[in-house]
Amino acid sequence: MRKHFAFVALALCLGAGFSAYRGGAAAQADPRQKAYATEPDWNDPQRLIPLNYQQARGKRLFYQYCVWCHADATPAGPSNRANLNPVPPLLNDGAALNGKSDEFLLEITTLGGSAMGKSAMMPPYGRTLTREEIQALIAFARAIAQPPYQPPAPR
């Protein structure tokens, strides 16, 4: 057990060293270089958020299925969001979504709002999207959240 502890300490020191080093390089490094895709920060379009494979997949699904209600601009023009009552949270709304667990988000997307005691205007996607696709959507939401999402500490 003591050995483990020593390793954690070692790894953390190294990790810190590494990230400091990478932080220096990141000033000019292109964030797209190591990412499958990027998404501009919705609150600050100049800032690009790099996405890993799963998040990039979530992005594609989001812009196909959810953008109509969970964003203010859509590829086809006006958003439907303002028509809805209750008005759905923007997908990057960290204040609304950061406090909700992955499990909850997975369930409400799978079963729809009414199954979770929320509005039926949130449709169920469990028969349209696979579980993996819904997980990818959640990963994307977490990646673009503002304020940023902090995963809960592992127990």
Binding site: K3, H4, F7, V8, L10, A11, L14, G15, F18, S19, R22, P151, A153, P154
Partner: peptide
Amino acid sequence: SWLTLRRLSLCLSVPVLCAA
């Protein structure tokens, strides 16, 4: 044992793995 550690620590990234 180092692999076990990986499961314990969430923030361990790949460079860290390599370095360790």
